[in-house]
Design a protein around this nucleic acid. Structure first.
Length: 569
RNA sequence: UGGGACGUCGUCUAACGGUAAGACUGCGGCCUCUGGAGCCGCGUAUCGGGGUUCGAAUCCCUGCGUCCCAGCCA
């Protein structure tokens, strides 16, 4: 897209149209910011980033990139009680991993504490702010409520000099936490509660992750955010819908101060079915041990889904697909999974793995013989080449791939039936061996030597192809299967007196200890991704070691049989 | 009951006064050495009621519904 000619058709690199993009297009056309597009991604370092933040990151970085603009990474660190460097580090890592680059524009609201303080003093001088001695409880009472106007604080008309003196002494640490605040003098009768003399600075004798004990007063979000945007000459300050009510205050501060005025634009935050996207609640899951950490593969955090095996490309494609609007809705989890499969299908090497092994003996196959069968690494990508997989008389197949009494439409192995062993031979089941308890522990087959590699010279067809590993050559692994963390589409929908914890899915993690893998997987590196044929996409977990391979199921393959079976019930 | 915002297929998004389109899902079929992938086809929507207009998802009025706001959190 050529910024000097915004009406030209979007280039192929252009992002999808949305109302924020339209606003930028128009601003470019009217030369509102001299052709500049400068956005920012402003996380508070009080938790890990999640898929909802990815939407914001893609929007902010994507839009700026499209129009040749810039995006700053700015930590909104004005509340020392909740912020930690661990979160700062994870956030930077996540943004990079997602594929975005803030170059040399890494900022912190705390960088601006000095300027912010000066501006607060300006506000006092202009008679637009005052020091208030009301307690938090009293402030609440004076504020009024949704239908009743508030009443002025008794400290509202203090003299400028007294305000200046008191504010400076607040800064100097002379007063205890909560004893006083600096408030903007606006309108206690405003129907917008945010305009009823909002607190601008509060006293907090807390150690800040960057400024230590330098400050004992900290600016509130509304004051710090817009003024930080102004300092950085942000053009479009994109935030979520709940800040819509704050925009008048955002505007008020920059106007009173007479400084550069960025424009705040609000869009709908991401909601995903069966998922919670609230840092507060995710923190609760971590702290109370409902998951194994911020990067638990069941978590919707970027660290979690990355560990699970999701790719940055898939997430970016998803963010592109969901669009941006002001409608409050919920995206189906299935759409995210669709994009994950789509990306993984293209890039994942195929491999054979048996999750729940069943011993299969080919009675007419020579004892002790081993053949190396050639297998395609990725049918979507011929350049991925082939590999050799050992085949022998005793194999492991999936328990699900044998039924003594096959239901209708079940095409896999059963007594008397012939199937193809992928890249192997056609085999016909002769009989099953059962334990005293009656469970099938071993099945016996005969093979057709003429079908080596998986094709019958006589052209006969089989209804199904199943995967296998050679029992003597396979390697062991632990495989972690994940299901939705919550059982309800909306985890917040609960019975009286309960909270979202009640909707936790007790089966969100299933550990399969005795999986058998083809030997090519030996030494697979943490983070590497594979398709286990017919099962799904799996990624080597960070818990994995050479001695003990651990895989996460990223997402299953679409399963037509599962659907048929489910429908039958 | 004050204020702010939002209502288009099951879900999300487009259509900017001129044939309601796409994606996901679902359902059929084709193809297949993954019941994967791919391909083809089908289905369902403008919140209600008035108005303006040759023509309304779009503009106006009105009603209804949903979300957000009463932190010294962001």
């Amino acid at each position: 897209m050529n910024p000097s000619n915004p009406s030209a058709p979007p280039s192929p690199a252009a992002g999808p149209s949305n109302f924020v993009r339209d606003i930028i297009l128009e601003d470019l056309q009217t030369n509102k910011y001299q052709g500049r597009v400068h956005t920012r991604f402003p996380p508070e370092p009080n938790g890990y980033l999640h898929i909802g933040h990815a939407k914001s990151i893609c929007l902010n970085f994507g839009l700026a990139a499209e129009f040749g603009g810039k995006t700053n990474l700015r930590f909104d660190d004005t509340n020392p009680e909740k912020e930690e460097t661990e979160y700062v580090d994870s956030i930077m890592e996540n943004v990079k991993w997602l594929g975005f680059d803030w170059e040399d524009r890494l900022f912190y609201a705390s960088d601006y504490f000095g300027q912010l303080y000066q501006w607060a003093v300006d506000l006092i001088r202009k008679g637009k702010a005052y020091v208030c001695d009301l307690t938090a409880d009293q402030v609440r009472q004076y504020r009024g409520n949704l239908t009743e106007a508030g009443k002025p604080s008794p400290y509202r008309d203090r003299s400028t000099n007294e305000n200046l003196d008191l504010f400076e002494r607040m800064k100097n640490g002379e007063f205890p936490d909560g004893s006083r605040t600096l408030r903007a003098k606006i309108d206690m009768a405003s129907p917008n509660l945010n305009m009823r003399d909002p607190v601008t600075y509060r006293i907090l004798h807390a150690d800040h992750h960057r400024t230590g004990s330098t400050w004992c007063i900290y600016p509130m979000y509304d004051f710090a955010h817009g003024e930080s945007d102004s300092i950085e000459k942000i053009t479009h300050s994109i935030c979520t819908l709940e800040f819509e009510d704050h925009r008048p205050l955002y505007d008020w501060y920059v106007e009173q101060l007479g400084i550069y005025h960025p424009q705040q634009i609000e869009f709908d935050r991401l909601n995903l079915t069966y998922t919670l996207l609230s840092k507060r609640k995710l923190l609760q899951l971590v702290q109370n041990g409902h998951v194994r950490g911020w990067d638990d593969p069941r978590m919707p955090t970027l660290s979690g889904i990355r560990r699970r095996g999701y790719t940055p490309e898939a997430i970016r494609n998803f963010c592109k697909a969901i669009g941006v609007s002001k409608t409050n809705g919920s995206i189906e989890l299935g759409l995210l999974e669709h994009h994950v499969r789509e990306d993984l299908n293209r890039r994942s090497p195929r491999v054979m793995a048996v999750l729940r092994p069943l011993r299969l003996v080919i009675d007419n196959y020579p004892e002790g013989q081993v053949e190396e069968m050639e297998a395609v690494n990725n049918p979507e990508d011929p350049s991925a080449g082939t590999r050799r997989v050992p085949f022998s008389r005793v194999l492991s197949i999936e328990q699900d791939d044998f039924r003594e009494d096959p239901p209708k439409q079940y095409y896999r192995l059963s007594p008397g039936r012939e199937v193809r062993l992928r890249y192997g031979y056609f085999v016909t089941c002769t009989h099953a061996v059962k334990s005293p308890a009656g469970e099938v522990v071993e099945i016996h087959c005969t093979y057709d030597p003429a079908t080596r590699g998986g094709n019958a010279p006589d052209g006969r067809k089989v209804k199904s192809t199943i995967h296998w590993v050679s029992a003597a050559h396979s390697i062991d692994a632990e495989v972690r299967l994940y299901d939705n963390l919550f059982t309800k589409e909306d985890p917040n929908q609960t019975e009286e007196g309960q909270d979202f914890i009640a909707n936790l899915n007790p089966h969100s993690l299933e550990v399969v200890a005795g999986a058998k893998l083809e030997p090519s997987l030996a030494g697979a590196a943490a983070g590497s991704r594979y398709q286990f044929e017919r099962l799904g996409y799996f990624a080597v977990d960070s818990d994995s070691s050479a001695a003990r391979l651990v895989f996460n199921r990223t997402v299953g393959l679409k399963d037509a049989w599962a659907k048929i079976e489910k429908r039958g019930k």
